[in-house]
Simulated assay, not measured.
Amino acid sequence: MEKQHKQADLELLQQAAREGHLKLKYLDESGFDCWSPVSYSWCLVGTQKRQEQTARHGRRVNIIGVWEPDCRFTYGLSVGSITSATYIRFIDEQAKQAQRLFQRTGKITVIAQDNARIHTSLAVQQRIAVWQQKGLYLFYLPRYSSELNPIEGEWHQIKAHQIRGRMFEDEYDLAMAVIASVQSRGEITGCRVKRFGFKSKKSRKQTSRSSV
């Protein structure tokens, strides 16, 4: 019953967004490895498919993104886990955008997302009132309902088509491939793409091969 009620609520939000009464976005996280999983494919008779592994496996590059279909895709990359604190920084920026929209048009912004722990932590709960004052509201999708979040399809396209079967020397090369893949998806879907940086102002003055 909960899923049916939540799905009905989401459909109302989608209808309101189509009619221009509010802005609806979808948020999710995903991850990428330097070594792509081996997959089935065609090859010439007498030959064997090969995926040459690099010298080191490297760390996982994680992505957090918020997608407004046919309009905008904003994302951030992190080498290692995306924490609740990382999520809050990302949503704080979304709240700034929502506040500008609300002040200009009176429209609120709604972000639909799953019930991951980093989305529901105590620190997040303590920020909700602040975000709502700026015109940003969070909508939690029913549990185990990834099919209701269309950003999942974007992650699939990137993994299944953009970087499938590739091996990367290190996290930097992997991150650059993910950045290029997201940009390519933006061009295909007609969305403006913006990358959010998690580094502090001090660290932005420093450049290194490991920064993403």
Rank of each mutant, 00 (worst) to 15 (best):
E152I: 01
R18S: 08
H156V: 04
D70R: 06
E171G: 04
L44N: 11
V61W: 05
A123R: 11
F32H: 15
W155Q: 05
L24Y: 03
M1I: 13
D173M: 10
H5R: 12
F196Y: 08
I63R: 02
D173K: 15
T54L: 09
A95G: 02
T109Y: 07
G76D: 06
H5W: 03
L122T: 15
I179M: 00
T105M: 00
A55K: 03
A112K: 02
W155T: 02
I91R: 10
Q113Y: 09
S210Y: 12
Y40M: 15
Y144P: 04
S84Y: 00
I118W: 11
Q113A: 08
K202W: 15
Q157R: 09
L13W: 02
V110Y: 01
K6A: 14
R56S: 05
F139H: 11
M1G: 15
G106K: 03
R50A: 14
G190T: 00
L22P: 03
H119S: 06
F198L: 12
S145I: 00
E152D: 05
M167S: 13
I91Y: 04
G165E: 10
Y40D: 15
I151M: 01
W42P: 13
E154L: 04
A85T: 09
I179F: 00
Y144V: 10
V110A: 05
R56K: 10
V178A: 10
V193Q: 01
R117M: 04
T109F: 07
S81A: 05
S41P: 08
H156G: 01
K107Q: 09
G20I: 04
H119I: 02
A8S: 13
I158R: 06
E93V: 12
E68G: 01
T86A: 14
N62H: 04
Y137V: 02
P150H: 00
L10M: 02
R195T: 13
A129H: 07
M167V: 08
A116N: 00
A180E: 15
G76H: 05
R72E: 12
I128V: 09
Q125I: 14
Q7V: 06
H21S: 13
K96G: 03
V45I: 14
E169S: 01
T120D: 06
V45Y: 10
S145E: 00
I163G: 04
R89W: 11
G190M: 07
M176K: 04
R56P: 12
G80C: 04
W35L: 12
R104I: 07
I158K: 01
T120N: 06
S184M: 08
Q99A: 05
S181T: 03
W67M: 11
A129L: 13
Q126A: 03
I188K: 13
R127Y: 12
R185G: 10
I108H: 05
Y140W: 11
Q51F: 09
S30Q: 08
E187D: 04
G135T: 09
M176Y: 03
A175F: 06
Q125H: 02
R59D: 10
D9M: 12
G165V: 03
